[in-house]
Design a binder for these strands. Structure first.
Lengths: 240, 240
DNA sequence: ATTTTTTATGGTCAAACTGACAAAAAACAC
DNA sequence: GTGTTTTTTGTCAGTTTGACCATAAAAAAT
């Protein structure tokens, strides 16, 4: 991205809020800024929208650039247009929210220390907290630009939509073979609270099974490593 | 708006979806395009975002330009960025949804035939329908640009948010003195279906009265023209 | 003046849903 | 075998929802 922009026009950029659920916790991807402004600060991956790309296409390009990944669930989050959000000039940002399964994201992450990094997210009523491991803790105000606000908006949107959209399923390693326990873990990570397993099962079955959106799979067809405890039934998200 | 735009950059515009509830029906404001492209077509009011204005400020300016009005509820709807949505060049549009009480909008509308015009909206599962009076009926495809899609997005958003936000109150002439019947009319217009008055009352009272968001007003303080039937209690939306 | 009509308000009742919890089932660890 | 863990089924009271019916308070009709 150019470090100085023409001062007489409005530029359009895209920022990607790339989310995953790792070990029962919601995580997001931040990269460290190599140059000014906010040199050395952590920031969401961003990219100017080019003449020949839609914002959606730009957001997907950017995602593929960060993680060599084919595709992922993406949805437009909000457009941020405050006048001084970028010191280089007038830049508005269309933020996108991406959900990537941890098992797919994990092998694509570069080695520790370099490049982008995952941060655990906490947003309990009060302020945003980010935890990057090795004692690295950030608050929303530590981030570049208005990216703290973008993250807050994204997490709240995710929480609001989780129980009337399919969004939770996109965090599952394989929506065509998952257990209700795995789905519950996604809910608990996103909502940052525990959920009663029994009631969760009932809710999901009412919401999806009756309408045919999910169905049980014969476990013999889907070999799975099993841990302790009674083995769980395998469900799949159906096509229609 | 210039009829030819520079071909090497991305322009940012704002479109306003100005909504009101008139005679129990959801209505929106369209203007007829004076010049190309889509000359003579009906379109949402739009405006390029200038260097020194946020999108929100641009949307408000545009609203004030259409209706000499001080302020109104506005909320960002969605950003449309398809490549060929504007034949003049590369223009993305940040759509805003505005809610204006009919009693405030009504005296500001220009005489029939000239300028902007109100259209009744119908969106029943199938396609979007617009009714402008005098036998003037449009479908979403008759509109300029992608404005049919913008309207569909806006109506669906409004329906989705009406019962967990305060948005319905902004269609009331005076949120500090309204009856539950008036509020019910807003709901029925937005949802395009009837609502049981008794259950509606119970729901609203549970949702707002217990939390102190609305309160009953002494009717003596608020003189009101009365129609037929038992006079209704007057409620007000409280500050906090 | 009385009745009818209209709108507002209050109440009932069964069905559906919710949250908290108990208990059985099916696997592993020892 | 006995414990432990996780999944799964069931229970039960409290709440919410949708469909009604009944009454109250006003204007309109007779």
């Amino acid at each position: 991205m150019a470090e100085v922009l023409r001062q007489d026009q409005v530029f359009v950029s895209v920022d990607d809020l790339i989310l995953t659920v790792r070990e029962g916790r919601l995580n997001l991807l931040l990269s460290r800024r190599a140059g000014p402004p906010f040199k050395g600060c952590w920031a969401l991956p961003g990219k100017l929208v080019e003449r020949a790309d839609s914002a959606e296409a730009t957001a997907l390009k950017l995602l593929r650039q960060m993680l060599p990944i084919r595709e992922a669930f993406m949805e437009q989050l909000y457009t941020f247009t405050e006048l001084n959000r970028d010191p280089r000039g007038r830049v508005i940002s269309i933020a996108y929210l991406a959900a990537v399964p941890w098992e797919r994201l994990s092998p694509l992450l570069p080695a520790e220390g370099q490049g982008p990094r995952l941060f655990g997210v906490s947003l309990n009523g009060g302020a945003l907290g980010l935890e990057g491991g090795e004692g690295l803790r950030l608050t929303g105000g530590d981030l570049a630009f208005d990216h703290g606000r973008i993250i807050e908006t994204g997490v709240q949107r995710l929480r609001g939509k989780i129980d009337y959209t399919d969004i939770a399923f996109h965090f599952l390693n394989d929506p065509r073979a998952f257990t209700l326990g795995e789905l519950q873990t996604v809910y608990e990570a996103v909502l940052e609270r525990t959920v009663d397993a029994s009631n969760f099962r009932r809710t999901i079955q009412n919401r999806y099974e009756e309408t045919g959106r999910i169905a049980q799979t014969d476990r013999a067809e889907v070999p799975r490593k099993r841990g302790r405890g009674r083995p769980a039934a395998i469900y799949r998200l159906t096509d229609q």
